[in-house]
Simulated assay, not measured.
Amino acid sequence: MANKIDVKELLEAGVHFGHMTRKWDPNMAPYIYMERNGIHIINLYKTAAKIEEANEALKKIAASGRKILFVATKKQAKDIVAEKAAACNMPYITERWPGGMLTNFITIRKAIKKMASIDRMKKDGTFMTLSKKERLQVDRLRAKLDKNLGSIADMSRIPAALFVVDIKAEHIAVKEAKKLNIPVFAMVDTNSDPRLVEYVIPANDDASKSIDKILSLVTTSITEGLSERKSDKEETATEAPVAEAEETSSEA
Rank of each mutant, 00 (worst) to 15 (best):
M101L: 14
M101E: 00
M101P: 00
M101I: 03
M101F: 11
L102V: 02
L102N: 01
L102P: 00
L102I: 01
T103M: 06
T103I: 00
T103K: 04
N104L: 06
F105N: 07
I106F: 09
I106Q: 11
I106H: 10
I106P: 00
T107Y: 06
I108F: 02
R109A: 05
R109E: 06
R109Q: 12
K110L: 10
K110H: 04
K110C: 03
A111F: 02
A111H: 01
A111T: 00
I112E: 03
I112F: 01
I112V: 12
K113Y: 05
K113G: 01
K114C: 00
M115S: 08
M115Q: 10
A116M: 06
A116C: 07
S117N: 06
S117P: 00
S117W: 05
I118P: 00
I118E: 03
I118S: 04
D119F: 02
D119L: 04
D119T: 03
R120Q: 11
R120T: 06
M121N: 02
M121G: 01
K122Y: 01
K122P: 00
K123I: 02
K123S: 05
K123F: 04
K123A: 11
D124V: 06
D124A: 07
D124I: 03
D124C: 04
D124L: 08
G125K: 03
G125P: 04
G125I: 03
G125A: 09
T126P: 01
T126W: 00
T126F: 05
F127A: 07
M128L: 12
M128E: 14
M128P: 01
T129C: 05
T129R: 08
L130M: 13
S131W: 05
S131G: 14
S131C: 06
S131I: 01
S131D: 11
K132E: 12
K132T: 09
K132Y: 07
K133S: 12
E134R: 11
E134T: 02
E134I: 04
R135V: 07
R135H: 08
R135S: 03
R135P: 05
R135A: 08
Q137K: 15
Q137Y: 10
Q137G: 08
V138Q: 08
V138I: 12
V138K: 10
D139M: 15
D139H: 13
D139W: 06
R140L: 13
R140F: 09
R140N: 15
R140K: 14
L141M: 12
L141K: 12
L141N: 08
L141Y: 06
R142A: 15
R142Q: 14
R142I: 05
R142W: 11
A143F: 11
A143L: 13
A143M: 14
A143Y: 10
K144H: 12
K144D: 15
K144L: 14
K144F: 11
L145R: 10
L145E: 09
L145T: 09
L145Q: 11
L145C: 12
L145M: 13
D146C: 12
D146H: 14
D146I: 04
K147A: 14
K147S: 13
K147E: 15
K147T: 11
K147I: 11
N148L: 15
N148A: 15
N148Y: 14
N148S: 15
L149Y: 14
L149F: 12
L149T: 03
L149D: 08
L149I: 09
G150A: 13
G150E: 12
G150I: 07
G150M: 13
S151A: 15
